[in-house]
Amino acid sequence: MPRIAGVDIPADKPVLIALTYIYGVGRTLSGKILQALGIDEKIRAKDLHEDQLSALGAYIEKNHTIEGALRRQETQNISLLRNIGCYRGMRHRIGLPVRGQRTRTNARTRKGKRKTVAGKRIAAEKT
């Protein structure tokens, strides 16, 4: 298993796909990187030459933010929003969708598992 840009170890897939195993590299960026370095996107990652591997690593690290640095940047951006007290920061704080989606239904990714509130009838009987 070859290593590109630090810890990442893509498998024996075509390089175009293998590169997307790096956090911060998707299909589009992967294609652009390979084009810039003139590497055939169809060859398998295991068939890459040593020089090509190091060239890929150097190129990616020089031109793009990936992995830890990218994750740090993201959390930083969010905490900035949280701290200035704007609407988006508020939504982050209370764990609701940030980009104006509906919350009457759905929004389960942000809200987590359903927390069922006891039905009205039962509550009425208790009082």
Partner: peptide, 10 residues
């Protein structure tokens, strides 16, 4: 830090 946002956001 607030530069670039709109007043209403706050």
């Amino acid at each position: 830090d607030m530069v670039g946002h709109k007043l209403g956001e706050f």
